[in-house]
Design a protein around this nucleic acid. Structure first.
Lengths: 222, 222
DNA sequence: GTCTATACTTCGATAGAC
DNA sequence: GTCTATCGAAGTATAGAC
């Protein structure tokens, strides 16, 4: 049985998550991770076959935990609008316990999935799938309008990951450019997004702001 | 005067944009950029003082062009809802001519702005500023409800950058996991987002889907 | 402006003692 | 399980010929 104290493997994984989030895969040196974990560099290779294996372990644990967390939203017998609120709250809660998560996700998307193995890819797919299930339910019972499930997923996940992952750069703006934005309360953002998304998907006569002078909807290129 | 043919400096910048987008700052080797640009590695150091200078040049040119592009939206005397549609269309048009842009932006946000100089930071701030100006106009004339300008900015920019930047990883999902999503038309997404955002900001009685059984709005943690 | 050759550093990874 | 020492590859950058 493992010791009660956090063992070296746990500390390595913890340091790896933070370092990969802050510096990216190539930017994160094994030496740096070792120092942060307070272990010798060789210990990393004792526990993990390679840097790539370490990275994949980090990603799989992360996306497996998130998938579990989100599927719980579907366990309750709630109406779709409530589920949508809970989905957003669940993602936000997950991220607030793991501030490194959105930055890793942003990087993986930018990377194009070139470093992802099949299993990680599969775990990641739970996010759009859970979202799509909620959308489908809402369209069936008539509370949601005819929104595209995948496009709606990006309209929900995009703001969450971008806003919560941008905390460090917003800090830079605040410090070096005298622009506000660093002090915005994450909870205020979640409330905003819930309201924003509910209005975005709700069925009912558009009540579109520009209804009269509706502009050409595509590519006006200004 | 420079030759009519694209000179080496232009080819280097072009190769650098693509390589930084695909591999990130640390992952992008100067050798690789040189090969892609069909120039000798030393040529890069003839035109640019260092890899970092090259990177900053790429970012500044990019965000300066985008800032110009977006400020044009404010030049026309349009009502706020129209401007909002045009803003989304303008960003989308900009990105479709520069597919590398969203990936670079995702990476910089994840990076936390540690590599950004003051000038680049200033250029980047045009995005939330233009958005905020449109929101302010809509709140003044009563067509928009009481939305937070910065939070709304993230609700607009987040989906755009995430969706358009995720084209490569969606391709991975399609190929290796038999999940659809690669074939989604970018124009369909833009139309979706315009409608979604208009509904999100429009003034008027919420018409919220879950109006009756409105759930606790914060952190239900499932 | 362009190229070859190379100096210098950093980084991932391993051997082998304890 | 943990540490020291080190190898070999890759990466940034520069000197100097043409």
């Amino acid at each position: 049985m493992k010791s009660a104290r956090r063992d070296s493997r746990t500390r390595i994984l913890d340091a790896a998550r933070r370092t990969f989030a802050a510096r990216g895969y190539t930017g994160a040196g094994v030496d740096h991770i070792a120092r942060l974990a307070r272990v010798n560099k060789a210990m990393i290779y004792y526990h993990f076959a390679s840097k790539q294996t370490l990275y994949r372990t980090v990603l799989q644990e992360l996306f497996a935990a998130l998938a579990d967390h989100l599927r719980a939203v579907l366990d309750r017998p709630d109406p779709p609008a409530v589920r949508l609120d809970r989905l957003i709250a669940a993602i936000a809660a997950f991220v607030q316990e793991r501030p490194y998560f959105p930055r890793i996700m942003l990087r993986e998307i930018a990377e194009g999935g070139t470093r992802l193995d099949q299993e990680t890819l599969r775990l990641m797919s739970a996010l759009p799938q859970v979202t799509a299930a909620i959308i489908a339910q809402g369209r069936t019972d008539g509370t949601f309008r005819d929104v595209h499930p995948l496009l709606t997923y990006f309209s929900v996940m995009g703001p969450i990951v971008m806003f919560l992952g941008s905390a460090p750069i917003r800090e830079q703006f605040a410090q070096r450019l005298l622009v506000p934005g660093a002090g915005v309360d994450p909870d205020a953002f979640i409330g905003h997004l819930q309201e924003f998304v509910q209005r975005g998907v709700a069925a009912g006569a558009a009540a579109r702001a520009a209804s009269a002078a509706a502009p050409p909807r595509r590519r006006t290129t200004v």
